[in-house]
């Protein structure tokens, strides 16, 4: 608990520090000191705005998940290339409801964003109580298989990382 009070949001602190250094685009002593000070101070004074701090179980898994998503984004765009330039008659657009079993709102947000960035799917609505997502797919010949794929590839990993 003692650690909590002087460093309420370690991930946000790290994030702010990285953003500061990137924005300044140098790594001089002054930049690092001021960055460290701001990164520590801002989360402390804005604590009241952060009702719950997202909990990351394993930074390494999070990093691997980000690499996986990055790879999928590139792959998804290759697929989108073909879909967009091909005949539109061959597309199978569909609305899909995807049940989810994540509880943490932050984890749901990450899942929804990941789905929006990858293969032909955009999250349109998050159901009340975060139990399902409404997804629009550009080309889904088999909606059930798509849901199974999304669940296996992203949801289980996000569940491992955040819950």
């Amino acid at each position: 608990m003692a650690a909590r009070s002087w460093l309420p949001h370690p991930n946000l602190t790290l994030f702010l520090f990285i953003v500061w250094v990137l924005l300044m685009n140098t790594l001089s002593v002054g930049v690092v000191l001021l960055g460290a000070l701001l990164a520590w101070w801002l989360p402390s004074i804005t604590r009241a705005f952060w009702p719950e701090v997202p909990h990351v179980n394993s930074g390494w898994k999070l990093f691997r998940f980000m690499l996986l998503v990055l790879g999928d984004i590139v792959h998804a765009n290759m697929v989108a290339f073909r879909l967009i330039l091909g005949p539109t008659r061959k597309l199978h657009p569909a609305w899909i409801e995807m049940p989810i079993d994540l509880d943490d709102p932050f984890a749901v947000t990450v899942l929804a964003s990941t789905i929006s960035l990858t293969p032909g799917t955009v999250t349109v609505e998050v159901g009340r109580g975060h139990h399902k997502l409404l997804i629009h797919a550009l080309n889904a010949e088999d909606p059930d298989a798509l849901v199974a794929h999304l669940k296996a590839r992203y949801e289980t990993r996000i569940k491992e990382i955040f819950e």
Partner: peptide, 29 residues
Amino acid sequence: AFALVGSIGLARLPDFFQRLHGPTKATTL
């Protein structure tokens, strides 16, 4: 090329929700 394809998708796909896919993915990448 990606940005162009995203914009082509925006211009030629038949309905709004399909057009949404071009800009969100291809243009961003």
